[in-house]
Simulated scan of single mutants.
Amino acid sequence: MSVSEEAIEVVPARRGRPGYDQQQVLEIAVQVFIEQGYDATSVASLAGRLGLTKSALYHHFESKEALLEVALEEAIGSLEGVLREPGAQSGSARERLEYVLRGAVCVLVEKLPYVTLLLRVRGNSDIERAALERRRAFDREVTALVRTAQIEGTVRADLEASVATRLLFGMVNSIVEWYRPTGAEGAAELADDVLAVALDGLRTR
């Protein structure tokens, strides 16, 4: 069989749909997980949404679990990365806290579907539980920053640091419910608004 004949045979198998690279498969899968819920999404329904056979889907990812793991890494890995950036490592605790909050908002905007998925997992699998533990570790590091800022006198000390962290990230995380990338504000402007509302409430009197 000639090369041209092989190419002609492949086209009907794809049913006229464009090919997907791994990133495109991941992006569509995340959207389906958000819409249907991860547990309720079968490999068959995911392949159907993509217009692929299950074997073609497995060419990109070996399992539904592998898709979830990569998707959650996009979110939690990016958040953890903010804590390792120079701006989160130097300066006063207040300045570092501001940097981390700003960075978290920017990650949320840049990785909106992935963070949305992260916020919706409930620990029903080892992959989800590992991601949730990393989220808790992230929160603990932010709480330590809040506590240090309280000690240095740059944020009010009459609030429990862990409660303040939950309230701050309750505000940040709520963005996934209403923010639209096509709106009037981009990540930088949105981060400015969050800092103005959130940290002014923590300012010392």
Rank of each mutant, 00 (worst) to 15 (best):
R96H: 11
E74W: 03
Q89Y: 00
P113L: 09
Q89H: 01
R49K: 14
A66T: 10
V115Q: 11
E98D: 14
A66H: 13
E65P: 01
L67T: 01
G51D: 09
I34K: 05
S42Q: 06
S55M: 12
V43S: 13
R102T: 08
G81Y: 03
Q31F: 02
L72H: 09
A88Q: 03
T41V: 14
Q36W: 06
Q31L: 13
R14F: 12
G37T: 07
S42L: 10
L79Y: 12
R96S: 08
E80H: 06
V10I: 11
Q89W: 00
T116A: 12
V25M: 03
H59W: 15
K54M: 15
T41E: 13
V100I: 13
V25W: 02
L46V: 13
L79W: 12
K111F: 03
L83I: 00
K111R: 15
E6P: 00
G19Q: 05
L52Y: 06
E65S: 15
C106H: 11
E5H: 06
H59M: 09
K111C: 03
L50D: 15
L83R: 03
I28Q: 09
L67I: 15
R15A: 14
E69I: 01
A93S: 14
E9L: 15
S42H: 02
A104V: 04
I8P: 00
R102E: 11
A13C: 01
S90H: 03
E74K: 15
E35T: 11
I28Y: 00
S63L: 14
P113W: 08
V43F: 04
A71Y: 06
L57C: 09
I76L: 11
V25L: 00
I34R: 13
E69K: 14
L108P: 01
E5N: 05
L118V: 00
G51N: 09
L57A: 12
L50S: 08
E27M: 04
V3Q: 13
H59K: 10
V82I: 15
E73F: 03
D21I: 03
L101T: 07
S45Y: 02
C106V: 07
L79E: 10
L117K: 06
P12N: 00
Y20P: 00
G77S: 02
L119T: 01
L112I: 07
